[in-house]
């Protein structure tokens, strides 16, 4: 038998990334995400063109939306706050849910395993690819918002939530940090989606289940009677990324969010592994 190359896992990862990002569906999801900041930016620009502020006196709408007309960089924060509850996790749910189930559905899973890709390695490759997609999706939203914000609104020094001023350069740094935290916030959904994906041989069913769970959790998170459970919902601390715009940064909920995502990744990652490595592949 030929000796396996130590770098072979990266060959499979490279192939997986190429395959995922060459798919029309992946590009369409990223396109929709890129369009959100454009819509928000244009809407704010139209509403504030007469000099009034967004949403009237009472505010409303996603976080930071009122500041956009003063500084285009705030469109990045607004766009991330607008897409994080639904658009971003939905896109991740589609990609994660399809990861194994889609291959099973197409029958390509059996050929990958006979190649032999190895079940643990294939699962790790799939999860890594979904994480890369989380990052790519978040960065697409952030980059689109950054460009649209700079085109439609003035840019310059900005004021944090705490009222202190920071330079535009530092603001960009915070924006990047926020994008990374938002991407990390999706790690839990990604693991959940991957686990669901190992349960079925239908890509559509896995995607629908993952997105359905996402919506259910978001609704349950709004019901006050379930208060005791809220800290365990993967979406509960999502909007804590706004704390990065405080001076000094308020870390409590940020850390709790990242810890919760790690917990989800560990629990559902293990479940996916246990399921996938013992599963009979009959499709």
């Amino acid at each position: 038998m030929r000796a396996p190359s130590p770098l072979w896992a990266f060959g499979l990862l490279r192939s997986e990334l190429l395959t995922t990002f060459r798919r029309w569906r992946t590009l369409a999801l990223l396109g929709v995400l890129a369009a959100v900041p454009v819509l928000v930016g244009i809407a704010v620009r139209i509403e504030t063109s007469d000099g009034s502020s967004v949403g009237g006196a009472g505010g409303g709408g996603p976080a930071f939306i009122a500041q956009i007309s003063n500084n285009g960089l705030f469109l990045v924060f607004t766009a991330l706050a607008a897409t994080l509850p639904f658009f971003l996790p939905m896109a991740v749910g589609v990609v994660a849910g399809d990861a194994i189930a889609g291959e099973a559905n197409a029958g390509t899973l059996r050929y990958l395993l006979v190649a032999p890709a190895g079940r643990t390695r294939l699962l790790l490759t799939k999860y890594t690819t979904v994480i890369v997609f989380c990052l790519a999706a978040t960065l697409v939203v952030a980059a689109s918002a950054l460009v649209v914000g700079a085109l439609l609104f003035p840019v310059g020094d900005l004021v944090t939530i705490s009222g202190t001023r920071i330079t535009y350069g530092e603001g960009l740094g915070r924006a990047l940090l926020i994008a990374l935290v938002v991407a990390a916030s999706l790690v839990g959904v990604a693991a959940l989606g991957l686990f669901v994906s190992t349960l079925t041989s239908s890509g559509i069913a896995a995607m629908a289940t993952t997105v359905g769970l996402l919506i259910t959790v978001q609704i349950l998170d709004q019901i006050p009677q379930l208060h005791a459970l809220h800290p365990y919902f993967f979406s509960h601390y999502w909007l804590s990324f706004a704390d990065l715009m405080r001076e000094p940064v308020y870390w409590d909920e940020l850390v709790r969010n990242l810890g919760l995502q790690a917990l989800y990744a560990a629990v559902f990652g293990s479940a996916a592994w246990a399921r996938f490595t013992t599963k009979d592949i009959t499709s």
Binding site: R14, G107, R110, A115, P116, L122
Partner: peptide, 27 residues
């Protein structure tokens, strides 16, 4: 096994490149 299974959105050549990349023993 039970007929071919392919990635419809990839070309024939890219399908083979992908299956070959899945084989750890393939150079």
């Amino acid at each position: 096994i039970e007929g071919p299974a392919l990635y419809g959105f990839l070309s024939g050549r890219d399908n083979l490149l992908r299956y070959d990349a899945a084989d750890p023993a393939a150079d």
